[in-house]
C-alpha cells in the first residue's frame, strides 16, 4: 500500500515533468520530491509533517522508498507508462491527480510541488542534480559513500537557518515558491562551482 501523500506527490510531479520536460526518470522524481520537501522547510514546517523521509541513494542523491513504491503502483495501474528511458503520466493518471488535487491536504502540498517542478523552467534536470550535489546534506553523505537519512535534526536546523536568511534577502513572503527555489539552486551552483575551481 502506498503512502497517500507520496502517491499524490508522484502523480503531481509526474504530470508537471511530463509537460515540461517530456517525461521523468526515477532519480529525477525523487530529486524533485526532495526539493518540494525543502520548500516546506523554507516555510518553517517541521520535516515530520512531510509524511515520508529521504535517504541517500548509491549515487548520493536523495531517495524516498514511498515515492519509489508509488511509481511501481502507478505503473501497475497504468497511470504512468514507460516511454524509452523515461516515464510519462497517462490520461488515467491525469484524471487521478486532478481528483486528488481537490483534497484539502493535497492543496497545501501542491504549492510545494508546483514550486519544485517549475524550477525546470529555468534549469535542465542535469543542473538541478548538480545543484543538489552541492547541497550540504547530500554532499556530506556522497563523500562518505554511505547511505543514511538525509534530513537529520542538525541538517534541518541548518536549512531553517539558511532559508531564514534567504527569506530575509527576498524581503517578501513568496506565494510562488519557484522564486526562492530557483534562487537557492543558483546559489548552490555558483558557490559550489567556485569552490571546485579553487580545488582544481
Amino acid at each position: 500500500m502506498s503512502d497517500p501523500a507520496a502517491y499524490f506527490d508522484m502523480l503531481s510531479l509526474g504530470e508537471r515533468m511530463s509537460d515540461l520536460i517530456e517525461g521523468f526518470s526515477r532519480p529525477e522524481l525523487h530529486l524533485l520530491s526532495y526539493a518540494s520537501c525543502l520548500l516546506s522547510l523554507y516555510e518553517g514546517h517541521p520535516v515530520a509533517d512531510w509524511g515520508y523521509e529521504f535517504i541517500s541513494a548509491d549515487n548520493g542523491l536523495p531517495f524516498a522508498q514511498e515515492i519509489d513504491m508509488a511509481i511501481d503502483i502507478a505503473l501497475g495501474l497504468g497511470q504512468v507508462y514507460p516511454k524509452g528511458p523515461l516515464m510519462l503520466l497517462s490520461p488515467e493518471g491525469a484524471t487521478e491527480v486532478s481528483e486528488l488535487r481537490q483534497l484539502e491536504g493535497n492543496r497545501t502540498r501542491e504549492r510545494y510541488l508546483a514550486g519544485a517542478a517549475d524550477c525546470l523552467l529555468v534549469f535542465n534536470p542535469g543542473n538541478v542534480r548538480e545543484a543538489f550535489n552541492y547541497d550540504p546534506a547530500i554532499s556530506f553523505l556522497k563523500d562518505g559513500r554511505h547511505t543514511a537519512w538525509v534530513l537529520t535534526d542538525p541538517v534541518v536546523e541548518r536549512f531553517y537557518a539558511n532559508f531564514h536568511q534567504l527569506r530575509e534577502a527576498l524581503a517578501y513572503d513568496a506565494h510562488d515558491l519557484s522564486v526562492p527555489l530557483v534562487t537557492w539552486l543558483k546559489y548552490l551552483i555558483q558557490t559550489g562551482r567556485t569552490h571546485d575551481s579553487y580545488k582544481s
Binding site: Y134, D135, P136, S139, F140, R158, A161, N162, Q165, L166, A169, L170, T183, K186, Y187, L188, Q190, T191, G192, H195, D196, K199
Partner: peptide, 16 residues
C-alpha cells in the same frame, strides 16, 4: 564542497 552558512553578498548579487 558543502554550503554551510549563506554568503549574503553572493546571495544579494544573485537576487539583484
Amino acid at each position: 564542497m558543502t554550503v554551510t552558512k549563506v554568503n549574503l553578498e553572493t546571495l544579494q548579487a544573485l537576487l539583484t
